[in-house]
Every structure is written in C-alpha cells, then in structure tokens.
Amino acid sequence: MNLISKSYYAWRFLQNLKLIWSRKDGKAGMLITAFIVLIAVAAPILSPKSPYTQVLEDKLKPPSLQYPFGTDHLGRDLMSRIFHGARASLIVGVFSVLVAIVIGVPLGLIAGYYGGLIDQVIEVITSAFWSFPTFLIALAFAAAFGPGLQNVLIAIGVAWWAGFARIVRGEVLSLRERRFIEAVRCLGANDAQIIVYHILPNCINPLLVYSILNIPSMILIEASLSFLGIGIQPPHPSWGNIIGSGRPYLREAPWIVMFPTAFLALTLIGLILLGDAVSNVLNPRLRRRMI
C-alpha cells in the first residue's frame, strides 16, 4: 500500500459516508448511532449525578426536574445509570466483534485458502457453533466462566465467530481462483503475500457489513445476560440489568423498565438502519442506482 492508495481509500471512505448520509435510513441510522455513542462517551459529563450514589430516601421516585428519568429502588438517578449503561453496549459492540474477528477470520482464511482436510475439519467446527443459538453459547460460556463485563465480551465473541469465519471463507474461495491471484503468483508472491495483499483487503467490505448488521444482536444478548444476572454485575449499570432490577417494581415504578428499554430499542433501530444503508452503499450493484 503506498501513499496514493491510502489517500484514495480516504476519499472513497468520505464518498461512502456521503452516500450513506444521502439515504433516509442512512441519515437516521447515523444520527441515532452518533447520539448513542455520544451519550456513552460523554456519560460522566452528561449525567446529572453519579450512577452509583444511593439516596435511599429518594428511591422509586418518578421523573422530575431533579431526577429526569426518576430513581431506581436504591435511590440512584436513573438517567445517570442509563447514560453510563450505554457504555456497556458500546463496549460490547466494539469488543465482541473484535473477539469474533480474531477467532473467525484466521480460521476462515486457512479453511478457504488451503482447502482439503483442514477445510473440512474447520467446517465441522464452524457448523457446530453456527447451529447453536448464539444466546445459548453465550449463556453456557458465562455460566462456565462466571459473570462480568470481560467474560461477557468473550462469551459473545465466542458465540459469533462462526459467521465471520463463513464470510471470510466464502470470499477466499471466490477470490482464490481469480485470474489476478494467479497473475500475482506468477510474479512470485508466496501464500502469505497473496493473503495479506489481495485476499484480506477484499474481505473488509463484507466483514464490515456483517459486523454492523450483527452488533444489534450482540448488544441484545449482553442485555439479556445482564437481565438474567449473569452479565454485567451491579452496581455497574447496563441496560439489561437495569431492566432486570426494575422488573419487581413494574407496577409502582414502570419508568425503571421503560427508559432503558426505550434506549435499547432506539440503539438497535439506529444500528439496523445504519447497517442496511451501509450494505446498500457497499454493494456495487445497488450502489449504481444511487450515484
């Protein structure tokens, strides 16, 4: 990769952003996602109070000026907890994907490139993971290794790697027989050079789209695990465990369940809209209609 390609990629990236923005779903998706990310990143600044401070006299208070989203059963400001809870979702979105990529991409590459017995072995393992519902795998992992943010991240990554491996394997298989790979081999490239310079760059697009489209599910799984009590442990806030903690008080203090649910739903909607727009923009055929 030389400087010219790097700047071209930057230009392409900006052009893609513009195209995404020009679409209704892209615009909405970008705005919503940006909003949630902003909240997560700037949570300490935006939160009126600390998410951990308990003011027991103020427990189960409805939304007011002092507590814009109300308080939970321990008198903690719900808004601050929800803003901080966004962080958990953001971290899951980023790091679980990374875990899945770190496991799935090399396996997919090896399986696709070398084929034969090793491909069959990896395929069997991939299929095994693929056929299990991701929630069950995450659940099993969390149960085995205990709760907490770190384990949740790894659990979700372990649940999801199979999809990434599949995608990469598919790309490798279709690219492996292409003329330009043969041409580069003719120039004297060895396997590693072919994989790094020619195959991996072509995998980035499909991987990116797949990631964005799956992050909502990953966030939901984290919320579900936290809701059940085996994800992020209190007092650390996560939308899931806030909803979980609010369940017994659904009648008296419905806001404890409503607000995090609303935020969760909003995040998912935003990401799905964005993912849809991105996949359309990056798909060369659908892209033509837009330019």
Partner: peptide, 9 residues
C-alpha cells in the same frame, strides 16, 4: 479485466 486486481492502482 480479471488479471488485474481491481483494488490496485
């Protein structure tokens, strides 16, 4: 068209 990597200058 197929012998040149489409992503390279």
């Amino acid at each position: 068209a197929s012998s040149l990597d489409p992503r390279m200058t």
